[in-house]
Design a protein around this nucleic acid. Structure first.
Lengths: 295, 295
DNA sequence: CCTCCATTATGCAAATATGCATAACCGTTT
DNA sequence: AAACGGTTATGCATATTTGCATAATGGAGG
């Protein structure tokens, strides 16, 4: 028995005529006639007598109607689990992001998102690690570089640049290197190789070559604070440094460009709250313009 | 929420994979994938996580499944009202028929039908009256002449003939009329005008013209017995008379042909037990050959 | 790391359902 | 008896769903 046929039968039974029930169900009257015929054929019973005077239930139809009403109650309960949350976005969306982007870009802006969607709950995980979208470790992930495979819907957000920085105090004491080779004589701050979660995050070798950093920190802000504290020369996101007066650009011609991508599992494509967050991030990045690039 | 989508979701939830559930439901795996996507979009929720390892319910999916199982219980109860009667035809079929055909042809043969379908119950109403098929006064009606309008499926069964008969005793006493005009001097047995239920049943005037029968009886067998009892000359169905030695054909060149039609309401088209009876009658008449015609 | 297998997702053609327009129907009114 | 109005049923064109075939996927095993 086709349950959708049954649901339609129930409405006709209540309405007493095909035309009115069709309007109520949002289908054509002809469709409804056929759906009922299909149900009667399937059950091998005449459930209602139809004529220009409308539809009257047979005894068999009465019996079925009673059971369908109980089914309807359970169906409506099930549906209610999801309804009422549609108009205003509700539920939780988890964003996984590299800490540079997550903390510097997203965190300050989440208030806008919260005010726009009061019922929405946002979880931000600003740590540099891979997020499995298929296992729902995050609903939306910010990635460095394009995701290679898997059922993710991916879109490039923006390019961003990284450069070498050191504190004024450090440079005053150790001198400013004039060439890339001269970096060998300095203390370098980089990231933890083992915890590099994506090929695109391995930009330290592009700056230091085979020279391994003396100090390795796995987060961008950790690196920032270490460099700020005079620990040495480090590779920092230009947008993270911003206009910090305590820091000086070192070897400015050495710069690396990467790109942030946004991804979510394709099954989330139809989830409005996820799409709302996606759109929020995309439009936020677009509005920020060149903010993520070096001046 | 499409209830049929929901029913399919329930099966996938139990099976743990699309492919197995598709087989169980008798649909293609691709169809099932789309039905689930459609349900998830409708409810704005991810009900299950799908991958090459199969399908795992989310918490939302778990909640919905619980309600759907209750709906399913009610649906199965409703369906059970009709199931279990399909393989062997059961239920009741009412046949309305003119008494000539009903008693002389159908009644003797109903034993065959009963043995063929032990669970089937047949009601025969062999009275010469109109049966409203749309109001289920009969499931199957045998009619004289083609039904004119309405939502009946009609099929011609056979032609049959009527002739004038009298008992030998009557003719010995009153003489045998040599012409149609001579009938005026005889006692005539006909039917009750007021109860003539169809134009086709008004054959008495075709024999007697404007002469009104002295004795009017509303049933064919009533007329038969009256004629047999010497009441007069009557119009009888040739197949009802059969080879009765007590009766003599009068004015054999006067004969009238009518046809029996079988009809049922179109909503009964899909009801197997009704179709079984229809087929039984049609094939019975075909097998009887010229039985309903005068020799 | 590569291969295999059983799974899910999707493009495309075929099959089916749907809506539109209209014929047929029945009860009411004139 | 005829006309009217609101109903249901159905032919046909269009829209949608479905099945088929195959690409993509992830876990297991070698």
């Amino acid at each position: 028995m086709d349950w959708e046929d049954a649901r339609m039968f129930l409405t006709v039974a209540r309405e007493g005529q095909l035309l009115g029930a069709a309007k109520r169900l949002g289908v054509n009257q002809a469709t409804l006639s056929r759906r009922l015929t299909h149900l009667e054929r399937d059950l091998q019973a005449t459930l209602m007598l139809r004529g220009p005077q409308g539809c009257a239930l047979t005894e068999e139809g009465q019996s079925l109607m009673a059971r369908l009403e109980r089914a309807e109650t359970a169906m409506q309960e099930g549906e209610a689990l999801f309804r009422g949350r549609e108009a205003k976005l509700s539920g939780t969306v988890r964003i996984g992001a590299p800490d540079g982007f997550g903390v510097q870009f997203l965190a300050p802006r989440l208030g806008i998102l919260a005010r726009r969607h009061p019922e929405l709950r946002v979880e931000l995980v600003p740590v540099p690690r891979a997020f499995s979208l298929s296992q729902r470790e995050a609903d939306v992930a910010i990635l460095v570089g394009r995701p290679e495979r898997g059922r993710a819907v991916a879109a490039k957000l923006t390019d961003y640049t990284l450069g070498l920085y050191a504190s004024h105090r450090y440079l005053a004491a150790a001198g400013t290197p004039a060439t890339r080779e001269a970096l060998r004589g300095h203390r370098l701050v980089g990231n933890v190789e083992d915890l590099v979660s994506a090929p695109g995050l391995d930009y330290v070798t592009e700056f230091f070559g085979e020279t391994r950093p003396t100090i390795a920190i796995s987060t961008a802000f950790g690196q920032l604070e270490a460099v700020r504290g005079g620990a040495g020369i480090g590779v920092l996101h230009d947008f993270v440094v911003g206009g910090d007066p305590a820091l000086a650009r070192v070897l400015p011609e050495l710069t690396v460009t990467r790109s942030y991508w946004l991804a979510y599992h394709e099954s989330q494509r139809a989830i409005h709250r996820v799409q709302a967050v996606v759109e929020f991030i995309r439009s936020g990045v677009a509005a920020a313009g060149g903010w993520l690039r070096s001046p």
